[in-house]
Write a protein that binds this DNA or RNA. Sequence first.
DNA 1: CTGCGGTGGTTGCGTTCGCAACTGTTCTGC
DNA 2: GCAGAACAGTTGCGAACGCAACCACCGCAG
Lengths: 156, 156
Amino acid sequence: MNLPERQIAETGDANRLALEGFLPYRLARAAEIISRQFATLYRERHGLTRPEWRTLATIGQFDRITATEIGAHSSMHKTKVSRAIRALEERKWITRQVDDIDRRIEHIELTREGRTHYRDLVTLARSYEAKLVQTLGETGIGQLEAGIAAIERKHT
Amino acid sequence: MNLPERQIAETGDANRLALEGFLPYRLARAAEIISRQFATLYRERHGLTRPEWRTLATIGQFDRITATEIGAHSSMHKTKVSRAIRALEERKWITRQVDDIDRRIEHIELTREGRTHYRDLVTLARSYEAKLVQTLGETGIGQLEAGIAAIERKHT
DNA sequence: CTGCGGTGGTTGCGTTCGCAACTGTTCTGC
DNA sequence: GCAGAACAGTTGCGAACGCAACCACCGCAG
């Protein structure tokens, strides 16, 4: 019974909302902080944008994959994927080859150079995650992951 | 000792990264899902954009406030705030008055109409948060909040 | 009182975004 | 075997973004 004690406590006034206590806001803010922090790393080191990093990470994870699959796996809109692919292709980090039997489909793979960058990106990601564990603490990370997992569970 | 067991387990290959298991990605995705879901509500109901909603929420929380303060409180860039304020002013939901002694400063308040919308927005937010508690579960929410709190603690 | 650094807020501009429309191709049903 | 639905991927376009430059104003030093 009567659950919103927490929220009321924050402003002391039921007719106001404390933005800093509102979960969607806090979540968005937290994600923004982490995302920006990590983005700085791969931007400075590889000159990648956020969509490009996600695309590269997905291709590297699967070796050979199509654009739509990239979008599905990395939660990105078709157009973002398309543009990221073009950018990576221009850098010669990936190649595409049209499928033999279904010519709508393009299979994307990493070039040798792309693979080099991917490997470096993986260690970068691992070390950032490790640093995160260090600064937030094992329990903090665990709680965060559990909370996120709850969201993932409900929204496919 | 040896902590990254979790990550290795996800791909079964230490040279690859499982995007879907990478915390920054998962966090960004979760935030995106929640943010969009809630945004749909206030967009459909009040025709507000995300910066406008944050701005309105902040003004309503403090009655009388300046643009810089709004930015600081809602983690938004000056220009976003400036444009949101203009939009809200055009709708006649807020008024500004230049400070008497320091004429660089503008004090912003809600109009009666603005206050009406704000109140509705607050109940909308509360009910969305309640729904969130319901779908994610008390423990899920608790864990998520604890995780976010860890981030907030470290990054001011 | 004057010049000059700092601050509140706005604007210009190039970039990114996401929707909708499009091209080219395959699949389906008749 | 042909018309139309469905699908992979691209492109055009208006809206939103964020940076840097800017304007107006304050406050301080000399």
